[in-house]
C-alpha cells in the first residue's frame, strides 16, 4: 500500500502536467450539456457520438497519464488495469464510429445519468478541497480515473445502442468504481463512498426495466414494465 498523502499528490502531479486542459474539459462538458438541453434533454446521435469520442480520449489519457505513469509505480495492480483503460477507450471510440447510438428516452435513467455527469464534471473536483487536501489535488474528468468512470456511467445511462457493445462498456467503469472505493476505504478515506454510491446508483438505474434496459430499444421495456 501507499500513504494517502502520496496518493493525493498523484493528482497534483497530474494537474500540473496537464493544466489548463481541465478548464477545457469542463467547458466542453458544459457546452455538451447545453447542446443536449437545447434538444429537450435527449442526446441526439451527433451529441452521443461526440460524448463517446470525448470520453474515449479521457479513458486513454487517464489510463496512460494517471494509471500507467503515476499510480502503477506505487500500486502494482494499476499496471495491469492501465491497458484495460485503453481497451475501454477503443471500445468507446468504436461505438462512436459505429454510430448506432441515440438518446435514452427513459426520463429517470436520463436524469440519473445527467446527475452523474454533472457530479463528475463539476462537483467531484471539489472533494479534494472539502476533504482538507490542497485544491491542486482535485480530480478532473478525463485525467483522474474516478470522475472519468462516473461520467462514463452517466453517459451510458443517457444513451441507448446495440446491446452487446453497450453492455461491455459498463464493465470497466463499474469495476473501477468498486476497486477505487476499496482502495480509498483501505486508506481510511470516506471518499470511497463516492465511487461506491455512483456504482450503486448507475447499476440500479441501468437495471430499470430489466436487462433490456442496457439494450437497444430499452425504452419500450421500461414503459411496459413500470
Amino acid at each position: 500500500m501507499f500513504a494517502p498523502r502520496i496518493y493525493w499528490r498523484l493528482f497534483e502531479s497530474l494537474n500540473l502536467a496537464f493544466w489548463p486542459l481541465h478548464a477545457g474539459i469542463a467547458l466542453a462538458g458544459l457546452a455538451w450539456l447545453g447542446w443536449v438541453g437545447r434538444d429537450g434533454g435527449v442526446p441526439g446521435r451527433a451529441a452521443a457520438r461526440a460524448a463517446l469520442v470525448a470520453l474515449a480520449l479521457g479513458w486513454a489519457l487517464s489510463g496512460w497519464a494517471f494509471l500507467w505513469h503515476r499510480l502503477a509505480p506505487i500500486h502494482w495492480l494499476a499496471a495491469y488495469i492501465a491497458p484495460l483503460f485503453l481497451l475501454q477507450a477503443a471500445a468507446l471510440l468504436a461505438l462512436a464510429l459505429h454510430g448506432a447510438v441515440q438518446g435514452q428516452h427513459d426520463r429517470l435513467r436520463r436524469a440519473i445519468g445527467l446527475a452523474l455527469l454533472l457530479w463528475a464534471l463539476l462537483l467531484h473536483p471539489l472533494l479534494a478541497g472539502l476533504s482538507g487536501w490542497p485544491w491542486t489535488q482535485a480530480e478532473f474528468v478525463g485525467l483522474a480515473a474516478d470522475p472519468t468512470a462516473i461520467a462514463t456511467l452517466g453517459l451510458l445511462l443517457m444513451l441507448r445502442g446495440p446491446r452487446g457493445p453497450m453492455r461491455a462498456l459498463w464493465a470497466l467503469p463499474l469495476a473501477w468504481c468498486m476497486l477505487s472505493a476499496a482502495t480509498l476505504w483501505t486508506m481510511g478515506s470516506a471518499q470511497g463512498w463516492v465511487p461506491f454510491a455512483a456504482l450503486l446508483l448507475a447499476a440500479a438505474a441501468g437495471r430499470r426495466g430489466g436487462h433490456a434496459a442496457f439494450a437497444e430499444g430499452g425504452t419500450r421495456d421500461h414503459g411496459r414494465a413500470r
Binding site: 500500500m1 500513504a3 498523502r5 502520496i6 499528490r9 503515476r70 509505480p73
Partner: peptide, 13 residues
C-alpha cells in the same frame, strides 16, 4: 519500508 517508502515519482517524498 512498507507504505512509507512507496512514494513513486514524488520527488519531495
Amino acid at each position: 519500508s512498507w507504505i512509507t517508502f512507496n512514494v513513486g515519482g514524488d520527488t519531495a517524498a
